[in-house]
Design a protein around this nucleic acid. Structure first.
Lengths: 242, 242
DNA sequence: CGCTTCTTTGACCCTTATCAATGGCTGTGG
DNA sequence: CCACAGCCATTGATAAGGGTCAAAGAAGCG
């Protein structure tokens, strides 16, 4: 039993732009189904082609690239509202994998419908480009983090970013946000070894800057952490959905 | 005296998709002028808003982010055909600067025309999204490089990528491609110190893997370098323009 | 309850950063 | 035409941040 777009829990969130009734009607037609993936499973495999693309309705995951020699780089963490698989639409195939870290529910759209979207729904097409640009911008920040910041700053940056986004998504409960990833994932995202990541987290925990345990995260001193990592303040304008 | 789109030197290049006559006509109207920037000057400043955006017609530059404490991260190198300033369109403002490394000529487009593009030229809008996705993909690869590869591999990766793109753009002369950047730029791009970058380049030069001098670059052993860096083979499908 | 997966901790070492000069090229002005 | 300034490339010496190895706890799960 799928969630109809008019009842989409994401659209209720002020962090996302609202739809006009026409857009809503279009999306209801455009969405061809829902897909649920178990935690730990792969949503899209690096190198795969896909006749569909997705939007995350519920759950969390990550994008990762595997290099030839087996090393893994986590490109970004995937949260509700994120687009998944646009890559496979315009490039021949996915250049990275997407994995589910919790159970993930995806809205499914057909590749064939994309042309329809561009020709009949310019506003939706613009939103798509917007989302792509937002992601590009975020990756730019990631590049800056990996290139310029040391281990403490990298981890602080990642935690603040995740914490902020999860909070915006209303996933915060009593100051705790869900943190379903493994330390290895964070290490792979920040280009650090697991060991060093663990030791750095331990230090931050001792200083009561970030407490991550039991798959949840709390930042008792979010501001201090943000300053430590020199996280850029982010405009809180609503981002488009799909 | 500006270059009319029908005589655009980039479109002649098979690396780029061709236009239909209608698209061509639209672009001629959409392009409101040309802008030439001297080497060393800033095209767009981090934090700036811009009523226009650009496409690079000639010349080379770079995108860079400056952190609060003055450290600089080069996000990517900018070559002909690249889009510049889309960021400022959809986000409030530029999150990075764009600098000219040589004299750069830009095609200028008006922000106001963008809506027109989306509503009347779905194919162009799709191309815009495509370009954005290509850039996103490239940044993903950059993240993987900074996160997982050591100094030699990073530099090899960057040189191969630049060499390949410049060659595709027909900028190669006798195996030499233009390399107008400073070692400091490459160091800032790869998250390495200038000193270490220099020493690594010296070693590669000694091994006749990469010869970079006098603002040009030759890769006598491109394949060996590519293997060294584990550069992914890239589909050579034409990319869209604008 | 035993197995597997993930986290934690200690010891050691290597890659890369930092510091400090020198050398080279280019343009400008006396 | 030479001297000087400025920018960039080059090189050597030293130090540190983070990687690697190894092994022991915790914690989830069938």
């Amino acid at each position: 039993m799928t969630t109809p777009c008019h009842a989409c829990p994401l659209r209720q969130n002020p962090a996302f732009e609202d739809f006009t009734p026409q857009e809503l009607a279009f999306m209801e037609r455009f969405k061809i189904g829902e897909l649920t993936i178990e935690p730990g499973r792969t949503i899209l495999m690096q190198g795969a082609q896909s006749p569909q693309f997705y939007t995350v309705l519920r759950g969390q995951g990550l994008r990762a690239k595997t290099l030839e020699d087996g090393r893994r780089q986590v490109i970004s963490f995937v949260l509700p509202g994120d687009l998944v698989g646009l890559q496979a639409m315009v490039m021949r195939e996915m250049q990275h994998s997407v994995e589910a870290s919790t159970e993930v529910t995806l809205c499914v759209f057909d590749r064939a419908g994309l042309w329809d979207l561009f020709s009949s729904q310019p506003q939706r097409a613009y939103s798509l480009t917007w989302l792509s640009a937002v992601e590009e911008n975020f990756l730019g920040e990631t590049v800056a983090t990996l290139g310029q910041r040391d281990a403490v700053q990298r981890i602080a940056w990642a935690l603040v970013r995740l914490h902020d986004r999860l909070t915006q998504l209303d996933l915060s409960v009593d100051g705790w946000v869900p943190m379903p990833w493994r330390q290895q994932d964070l290490a792979d995202a920040m280009g650090l070894s697991l060991v060093h990541t663990n030791k750095t987290l331990a230090r931050m925990r001792a200083e009561r800057l970030a407490i991550w345990q039991g798959r949840r995260l709390a930042l008792p001193a979010r501001e201090m952490l943000a300053e430590l990592a020199a996280v850029e303040v982010e405009g809180t304008q609503p981002r488009p959905l799909l």
